[in-house]
Structure formats: C-alpha cells, structure tokens
C-alpha cells in the first residue's frame, strides 16, 4: 500500500534552488534511504514534506499525498506526532532537559489520545520493547542522566508512541558509538518488520543504508541523480556522486 507519494517537489531560497523536481513513493513497511553529500538537499526534502522548513523557503510541488490526504499547502505538520514520527541526529536535542523522560513519552501518548490511566504502563512497555534495561526506573530519569544510546531510544519511543505509519529518521545513529548504533539499528529493523512502519532514512553512512534500506535515492546539488534497489545502487553505482559516497567507505576496506 502506498503511504507517501510525492511528485516534482522543488524548494528555493530567493533565487537559489536547493531541491529540484524531487519525487518519491514510500510503501507500507518499506525503508527508502536518501543519500548524498552535505548540501545535496536530502534533509531539505524531508523537512519540506514535514512542513518544517523556514518561512523564507519557497516550496513548489505538483502532487504530494500521505495516506491519500493532500500534504500541500498545509504540509504534513498536522500529521506529525501520530501518523508520522521523527527521529533526528542529536537525541538530546529532541528531549526537554528538565522533564523526566517517562513524562515526555506520556505526553506523546496523550497527543495520540491514549487515556491517562494507561499511559505510564504503555511507556514502560515501549521502553522495554526498545531494549531499555530497567525501564520503569529509567523512565524517571532526566535526559542528562542517560547515555546517548538510551536518549535515542527515548526519542524513538516518543516517535512510536503515536503509532505512526511512517518514521522520518535523519541520521538517527550518527551521534552514537558503533556498538550502540548496532542496537538502535536492530530496533529500527524490528519496527519495520513487526509494526510494518515505513521509514524515510537519511544517512551518509553506507553501512547503515546497506543494513536498513530497501530502495535508495541519491541526491546531488538538489537533484536526484540515481535511484534503485539498495543492491543496485550500492553494489553497482552508476553516477559519479554515488561512487564518491561509496569511495570513503572502501578506503580502509571497511570489511
């Protein structure tokens, strides 16, 4: 089932066009990765769909729907927090420093209409499912008392509390150690397999893309230059921009 369909999305700031004619189809349970070097437009594309670009950005689009609902001109922002969940690079930036993490997840459940009496139990269950050890005690912690990996699990829990059909994950493991990254990737993989959540993944780590993505879209200077299945794009890259992205991964013969 098609969840998200976008045709010819363009974004400009003044005279400068930062994204040109971007098109995307995202199906239920599918992971599509947007890759590209810094400034290629991958985060711009995601933020435009979420309605999170600054007001000075000019957005043009031919067609954009999520679950059949027109996204523009209202953008996806009314869907954020329940049908669409977001996970960003810096887990601590997604959390309010002076509120206990359990209360923050409770609030995400509140937004999606879960009755107050059930929220705490659901919070603990969700943290448990995400592999947070001693979840009940940890839900009373403040963000600064948790490691980066645990904070990212809390951020994922907040995104999942709304029972989203789609996750937008922008460099979700870039700030984490590789051993911790593995645990977060295992969670994301499990969410797509068990909950059939679709994921729009933004990453420049080709190992992460290889492990999670079904399809890959390569952006360069705001334009899509290559797209295809993950094995086609990563194993036989055609465009020089894709080859450059894969080159660093191979310098040390990263196994």
């Amino acid at each position: 089932m098609t969840l998200l369909q976008v045709q010819n999305l363009s974004v400009s700031y003044g005279n400068q066009r930062v994204l040109s004619d971007f098109s995307l189809t995202l199906n239920q349970g599918e992971t599509v990765a947007l890759i590209g070097s810094s400034g290629s437009g991958k985060t711009t594309a995601a933020l435009a769909l979420l309605g999170l670009l600054s007001p000075s950005a000019r957005v043009d689009v031919r067609h954009a729907t999520f679950e059949g609902i027109d996204l523009f001109p209202r953008h996806a922002s009314p869907l954020l927090g329940h049908r669409i969940g977001c996970v960003f690079q810096d887990p601590r930036a997604s959390l309010t420093p002076h509120i206990r993490v359990g209360d923050q997840i409770d609030e995400a459940f509140e937004v999606s209409g879960v009755p107050p009496a059930d929220r705490r139990q659901k919070t603990v269950l969700l943290l448990d499912e995400l592999g947070v050890p001693d979840a009940r005690a940890r839900s009373d912690a403040y963000p600064h008392e948790l490691s980066g990996g645990l904070c990212q699990r809390v951020a994922i829990a907040m995104a999942l509390a709304g029972m989203p059909a789609c996750l937008v994950a922008d460099e979700p493991t870039t700030a984490l150690d590789v051993t911790v990254q593995i645990q977060v990737l295992k969670i994301l993989r499990r969410m797509t397999e068990q909950r059939r959540v679709a994921t729009l993944l933004i990453s420049h780590d080709m190992g992460v893309v290889a492990a999670l993505a079904d399809r890959v879209i390569v952006l360069d200077h705001g334009s899509v230059v290559e797209e295809g299945t993950v094995s086609n794009v990563l194993e036989s890259p055609r465009h020089p921009a894709t080859q450059a992205l894969l080159a660093h991964a191979s310098i040390g013969g990263r196994q």
Partner: peptide, 23 residues
C-alpha cells in the same frame, strides 16, 4: 559493529550481533 556496505552482508551482520546493553 562496523557494517559492510554490501546489503546482504550488512543485514546478516545486523541480525547476527547479540542484543547488548551498555552497563
């Protein structure tokens, strides 16, 4: 934990690594 860039190998590796909690 350093994932290979070949999709099949990366998925296999991810599945084979144990659940692990920093203590």
């Amino acid at each position: 934990s350093v994932l290979p860039t070949q999709p099949l190998a990366a998925r296999g590796r991810l599945a084979s690594l144990p659940e692990d909690h920093v203590t």
